[in-house]
Design a binder for these strands. Structure first.
Length: 782
DNA sequence: GAGTTTGAAACT
DNA sequence: CAGTTTCAAACTC
């Protein structure tokens, strides 16, 4: 395949870029000798990237079809022809659509055959065969309509592009020196599972092959079938991401009209491993840079004919947008997980996550996906289509996990779990696969790590979680059209946009979901044949009432004792914290999934009274933790704000000007406060010491039991302490006394006498231990 | 554990 | 918005 000069690549026209599939492929040396020859080694010096450098620690290979040995990355970018998704020009968007691996004709093999063979020197453009060739003033080239024919690639000579008039269209451009090609596949729906290259003839497909990768280490991305609507990709920063690395942008022309920018991942500078995510402006792929990190194979497969997307659309002009297309993993697929880059360094960044689902019934389980987004200005719109998946979206700051509820009977076209995927099995997975288009506009909290749950394939057989017996993960998507809470203040348990769209979103407590995730992971890891996922990342969450959500999640939740409020008012701490009552002592509790409707109403009522009722009361001050203050201030009158009645004191913060307290003693210079703090510190130290001592003792005892277990077994199962009977103790003492007397008789110094006694004591112990396993009545003989 | 105190939440 | 009531946690005994 011919390669277009790098300059041309960045000037790709919109119509060219209106493709839905981009296939990047590592050129195997055998197939594309020229490509490999031109391509620089992966260890080459990083090419300075104008775009944000993003650390991509890993690239997830999700292609189920591709053999593990094949170095291929499939990236499907779906770009609608109208390309109206880009909210802002500055927004970096990557349109990714999941591809169906099984059904997609563009398998790795196919992509390799059709695209990988041809490489030319940068700048050179050669069009070998007839087809649509277009070189506009904007340096746009459409090489061909190439039909992927079996074995065509193998016969191709380097530097030539096999273009068959089969109707597929390829656009090949070269940016950089590697000469790697990216195949942009136009949307097509006729493919069937297992269809190979020959299938392409029956179902002509348009491909646009773009070689944009300047880096040799980049691995081709194979993109399956494009999904219907366009997706937006936001650049994710400050987070290790498993993203798709497309290419490397070798140069940035400030003067020239840069239309196509693909940045794969944009990381914070502090990150070591970085990957730049291709910045795509609505159907425009500019470049992809991965200067630092070595790209890893990503195979995205299993594209849905229908849109299986989770789109987070910006309400605010996002600076960057990252779209992650995640295909459901096929068993035996080498790739495991896709970490969604959800931490963004800049507010206004957007995340669009596309989740592909398996159309093949052979793939009953859909990968679940968790989207964590941060931002106090969280605003989310969840247009959800019917699907049998649940999507979990954690919004730090809001303290709620938003779980999309889905009915299990929907989406036959999307290839959802159907009978294979039961509710229980879905419950087993903390993450939810969203096959419908979901557009969220979420301001991302900068520099916030997140816990990501890697989509983990489930076995065909349903899996049940046994550790979460008290909670029911799958919530019925009960239509509650009357409730449309502002997501900024979204309360717990709210069902979002149910009804017509069957977009059942229920807000689950953060700890609730976290527990589910953890348990699900354990269960899945143990039960599934796949390796244990390594994509879980700890996440620092937004403060929750002065405490980070992680801390809040880790701390033992205090059970409530509500009696009259039904746990549906803010009197209930569980409810106020956005948590379901669990192991509480409350009576007539409605703060559970069984009373979803009532709970939702209560939430709405609370929000009506106070739109910020569920927001953390302890906000973060200007200068960090020391400036934490109560948002409303306390109103204490009798406690002096030195008891836990006072919310400020309880949060371990001092009262501020916002407080209306009387007789406040909770201020910096207050002697009472200092005294209390000292006492509290001392008490805490004592508690810690006691705890440590207990822990140590327990450990020692446990260790003792462990080490003596063989002796116990050999000795007839007697416990060690049973050997030290009264008689043994008396005998030991006699031995020691005898030793002391002997030392005294020989007129040894005291130190020597003590040593002799201790040595004798040691011998006694040894005899006790040695005799313990031999006889039931150990004897001590001095 | 029962009773009291306290202040936030809810209500008027 | 202010006053009152309700409520559950914190506290005391």
């Amino acid at each position: 395949m011919d390669v277009v000069s790098p300059e041309l690549n960045i000037l790709l026209p919109d119509e060219i870029m209106d493709t839905e599939a981009i296939v990047m492929d590592d050129d195997p040396p055998a197939e594309s000798p020229t490509a490999s020859g031109q391509s620089q080694p992966s260890d080459d010096a990083p090419i300075p990237m104008e775009t944000d450098v993003l650390a991509v620690p890993e690239i997830v290979s999700l292609c189920s079809d591709a053999p593990p040995t094949q170095r291929t990355q499939a990236l499907t970018t779906s770009i609608t022809t109208d390309s109206t998704l880009c909210s802002t020009t500055s927004a970096t968007q990557l349109l990714l659509t999941p591809s169906i691996a099984s059904s997609s004709p563009l398998t790795l093999r196919t992509a390799t055959a059709s695209t990988l063979t041809s490489t030319t020197s940068p700048g050179g453009v050669s069009l070998t065969s007839g087809g649509l060739q277009k070189l506009s003033a904007s340096h746009q080239i459409i090489l061909n309509k190439v039909a992927s024919s079996p074995g065509a690639d193998t016969t191709r000579s380097p530097g030539t592009t096999t273009i068959t008039p089969g109707g597929q269209k390829f656009m090949v451009t070269a940016i950089g020196k590697s000469g790697q090609s990216i195949v942009l596949q136009l949307p097509h729906t006729g493919s069937k599972p297992g269809s190979g290259q020959g299938e392409a003839k029956a179902h002509p497909q348009h491909f646009k092959v773009l070689t944009i990768g300047g880096r040799t280490d980049l691995k081709p991305v194979m993109v399956g079938q494009a999904v219907s609507s366009a997706s937006q990709v936001s650049t994710l920063q400050a987070q290790q991401l498993k993203t798709v690395q497309i290419a490397k942008k070798t140069q940035v022309s400030s003067a020239g009209p840069i239309k196509f920018i693909i940045t794969k991942a944009v990381n914070n500078k502090g990150l070591t491993a970085q990957t730049s995510v291709s910045n795509v402006i609505t159907g425009r792929v500019l470049s992809t840079s991965s200067p630092v990190t070595s790209p890893r194979t990503i195979t995205l497969s299993e594209t849905l004919s229908s849109s299986n997307k989770i789109a987070i659309s910006p309400l605010k002009s996002p600076s960057k947008l990252t779209v992650v297309s995640v295909a459901s993993q096929v068993p035996n697929s080498p790739q495991k997980s896709v970490s969604l880059p959800l931490n963004m360094a800049h507010l206004g960044q957007q995340i669009l996550v596309q989740q592909s689902t398996a159309t093949s019934p052979a793939k009953p389980m859909k990968p679940v996906q968790t989207v964590t987004v941060g931002g106090p200005q969280f605003k989310t719109i969840f247009p959800l289509s019917t699907s049998s998946n649940v999507q979990q979206i954690q919004v730090p700051g809001s303290r709620f996990h938003y779980v999309r509820l889905v009915t299990a009977t929907t989406g036959s076209s999307t290839g959802q779990a159907g009978s294979h995927c039961t509710n229980s099995s879905m419950t087993a997975k903390p993450m939810v696969v969203n096959t419908a288009q979901v557009r969220m506009s979420v301001p991302i909290i900068p520099a916030q790590t997140m816990k990501q749950v890697v989509p983990k394939p489930l076995t065909s057989s349903g899996q049940l979680l046994t550790t979460q017996t008290q909670q029911r993960l799958i919530m019925p998507a009960t239509p509650l059209p009357q409730i449309q809470p502002n997501l900024t203040n979204l309360p717990p348990g709210t069902v979002l946009a149910p009804g017509s769209g069957n977009m059942g979103y229920a807000v689950l407590p953060a700890h609730y979901v976290t527990q589910l995730q953890q348990s699900a992971y354990v269960t899945l890891a143990s039960s599934s044949g796949f390796p244990t996922p390594t994509g879980i990342q700890t996440q620092a969450r937004l403060p929750l009432n002065g405490l980070s959500t992680s801390d809040a999640a880790s701390r033992p939740r205090k059970p409530c004792n509500c009696n009259k409020s039904q746990c549906l008012k803010l009197y209930c701490d569980c409810f106020a914290n956005g948590e379901f009552c669990q192991n509480c002592n409350c009576t007539n509790c409605f703060n559970n999934l069984e009373h979803e409707t009532e709970r939702a109403k209560a939430i709405k009522a609370c929000l009506d009274r106070n739109p910020e009722a569920f927001k953390p009361k302890i906000g973060k001050g200007k200068e960090g933790e020391s400036d934490r203050r109560h948002s409303k201030g306390c109103n204490c009158k009798r406690s002096g704000c030195l008891k836990n009645y006072c919310e400020c004191y309880e949060a371990k913060i001092m009262c501020s000007s916002t407080c209306k307290c009387v007789g406040c003693k909770n201020f910096e210079e207050s002697p009472e406060r200092k005294t209390l703090m000292h006492l509290a510190d001392a008490a805490e130290v004592r508690v810690q010491q006691q705890t440590a001592a207990k822990t140590k003792l327990s450990s020692q005892i446990s260790d003792l039991f462990t080490r003596t277990t063989p002796a116990i077994t050999s000795g007839g199962g007697r416990m060690p302490f049973t050997f030290v009977t009264k008689e043994v103790a008396e005998a030991t003492c006699e031995c020691l006394l005898e030793q002391a007397e002997q030392a005294e008789l020989i007129q040894q110094p005291q130190a020597t006498a003590e040593r002799m006694i201790l040595e004798e004591f040691g011998r006694c112990l040894m005899r006790i231990i040695s005799s313990a396993g031999k006889t039931d009545c150990p004897s001590i003989n001095c």
